[in-house]
């Protein structure tokens, strides 16, 4: 099959660009650890309230880990626990969340914290809150009639 000279140039350029994109993503993900949230741990969705760490939702300081805080969220139709939380600026936080019923989203608007919560699974993501201010936590995955009322708030303070 014959390719026009210009088409060869175009495809080499195009495929080359795709390879550059993939390399940037791959190095960032596998070498720097910026993987999308992909926690493999599971939990019985009906026993969420009695199991650690979900029996005590909220922010907790931890020692001897790569991150300084753990922020535990429990989602259910149509609210998050806790409904409001304060985080010191610059804190490296592991967000740990799960759902007690249907699928929910967990998005902290204006940040890269964005993950799916699915019944039976735990979702985790490590994030450093470098900017002060109020951040809206909202459900970005359809979960029922009150979906758009489902919110929480993270306040990053000095």
């Amino acid at each position: 099959m014959h390719l026009h000279k210009f088409e060869k140039i175009w495809l080499i350029f195009g495929i080359g660009s795709l390879l550059v994109f993939l390399t940037v993503l791959g190095v960032s993900a596998f070498y720097l650890g910026n993987q999308p949230p992909s926690c493999l741990a599971t939990i019985d969705p009906e026993k969420v309230d009695t199991q650690a760490p979900f029996n005590e939702p909220g922010l907790k300081k931890v020692e001897g880990k790569e991150w300084e805080y753990e922020l535990v969220f429990v989602a259910s139709a149509f609210n998050y626990t806790p409904g409001e939380v304060q985080i010191p600026k610059g804190a490296k936080v592991k967000v740990i969340a799960t759902t007690k019923d249907v699928i929910h989203g967990f998005e902290v608007a204006g940040t890269n914290v964005n993950m799916m919560l699915e019944p039976g699974y735990i979702s985790e993501l490590v994030y450093t809150f470098n900017k002060t201010g109020e951040f809206l936590v909202l459900c970005n995955e359809y979960c029922g009639v009150g979906h758009h009322m489902m919110t929480s708030k993270i306040e990053v303070v000095e």
């Binding site: 026009h4 210009f6 140039i9 175009w10 350029f13 195009g14 660009s17 994109f21």
Partner: peptide, 20 residues
């Protein structure tokens, strides 16, 4: 000549790269 085609696809490629 397909010079215009080459220019057009590179413009397209430029849009893809800038967006990404």
């Amino acid at each position: 000549s397909l010079k215009g085609t080459l220019a057009s696809v590179f413009l397209l490629g430029f849009i893809l790269i800038v967006t990404w």
